[in-house]
Write a protein that binds this DNA or RNA. Structure first.
Lengths: 260, 260
DNA sequence: TAGTCGCTTG
DNA sequence: CAAGCGACTA
């Protein structure tokens, strides 16, 4: 059986909120090391990969590997019933029909319990190659959100250009053009504001802002985000969850004809 | 003649907003003790009973008993013209064709006046038996709203089960099941958050969430709500208006086949 | 289907 | 105290 208790229901809510617009149904793969999820988005352009390590929970118990096939829209409905400071406990039998979510208010005077029916989902298991990226940019997640939002007023797509000078996000559209350039900088006092660039090769790739904005729903999960780019390889947008208790990663194939 | 002056138009607005979706036309029965209203909802499943005591007004004058038959949708339109902090005055002759609403801004710089035509409405007077309920639950009205909302994501109906341990709201639906349990608790520091249960007999009854959600439009009128239940008797959902100046009560017949 | 209002969260 | 998200209304 599976039993996983999370002190802050909020974290799980945010993870689900961040992926529910990309994926309809997916398996939550549970084993003794934690809970993981991998899925292509509905239009097969983006890929989501999430991991919540066992250490994120206390306690965490999972006797056998089980795949919980859940409809994310049902899950969202249920999670809406959780106050953010509630304690969330996830339970399932070894060959389950349902997964059980329990939300307890901190003072335990209110207990909500929900069962969600499970579904069989074809496990199109997606090997994600371990790529050596030409450029890795670490920046504040709020900054990334801001840039995607601002540039989406200009165009549907953004070109991310990484050189040793910095990273440049630019869009060209009908009303004009826009570009935001970040230079690498580190400040020990405000590590959250750091922009760090590791470059082995300059890159310039173009992506759909609609998807990037979707990924940005994970902003609340981590103060920083890591963008990894290489030519002709999907962009990796990586949010590391607090205390390194897991991650939420999005992959997005570049647009082919470059500029819009 | 009738003349009733209410310091806060807002309260009257909220009362009307809370019932306008249940009832199309109804009589406002005015006499020297105040203004009252009773009506079945359009589908004859729910009953609304409102009372605004004379003390809620200052001044209040009503020489003869009069029934003001008003179309609630017209009334709503007129009341929308009132700012929430306006002073509302309601006037009618003894054998009136119209009822007059006057809204004055607090500083009296703005006076709006509306006449609504009255209609003859068959006074199907509804004796509401004075029931001794098996269970009475007093809880924060916002909590009740929250529960009805959450569970309506699961099903059309909710079963309310009252035992000496607490009160349990549960729903079964296609995507799964949900239940919220509240234990009795009182905290003198936060009386608004109290959950108080008076039980003479355990009860379990099922109701339509659509109607309950409708009743919840009265949430803004009172920080707490009282649910009274007995087997095979309509549920009473009771919002006491501020300073005990009246009430807004809803009655809803239980669903027969219990579970959905 | 779009805009407004209220509620909840950070 | 301000912003974002969700619900309800027109």
């Amino acid at each position: 059986m599976l039993e996983a208790r999370l002190e802050q229901a909020d974290n799980f809510k945010k993870v689900v909120e961040a992926i529910k617009d990309l994926v309809q149904d997916c398996n939550f793969d549970c084993n003794d090391s934690g809970i993981a999820l991998q899925a292509m988005d509905n239009s097969h352009v983006a890929l989501v990969s999430m991991s919540l390590k066992a250490e994120a929970f206390s306690p965490f118990r999972c006797d056998r590997n089980i795949a919980l096939g859940i409809n994310l829209s049902s899950l969202t409905k249920v999670l809406r019933a959780a106050q953010s400071s509630d304690i969330l406990t996830l339970k399932a039998e070894d060959a389950p029909d349902v997964v059980n979510f329990t939300f307890e208010s901190a003072d335990s005077d209110r207990i909500s319990e929900y069962d969600i029916k499970l579904m069989d989902i074809d496990q199109e298991h997606l090997g994600i190659p371990d790529t050596e990226y030409g450029a890795v940019v670490k920046m504040p997640s709020s900054e990334f959100l801001r840039i995607c939002r601002d540039l989406s007023a200009i165009s549907e797509s953004v070109t991310i250009e990484c050189t040793k000078e910095g990273v440049k996000f630019s869009s060209n559209g009908d009303i004009g053009n826009g570009a935001v350039t970040l230079r690498q900088h580190t400040d020990v006092d405000k590590p959250d504001k750091n922009v760090e660039i590791s470059l082995t090769e300059p890159v310039s790739l173009t992506f759909s802002l609609k998807y990037l904005l979707n990924f940005c729903k994970a902003t609340g999960l981590s103060s920083s985000v890591e963008l990894s780019l290489s030519s002709e390889v999907p962009l990796l947008v990586d949010y590391t969850l607090g205390s390194n208790n897991g991650f939420l990663r999005f992959y997005l194939a570049p647009k082919i004809g470059d500029e819009d």
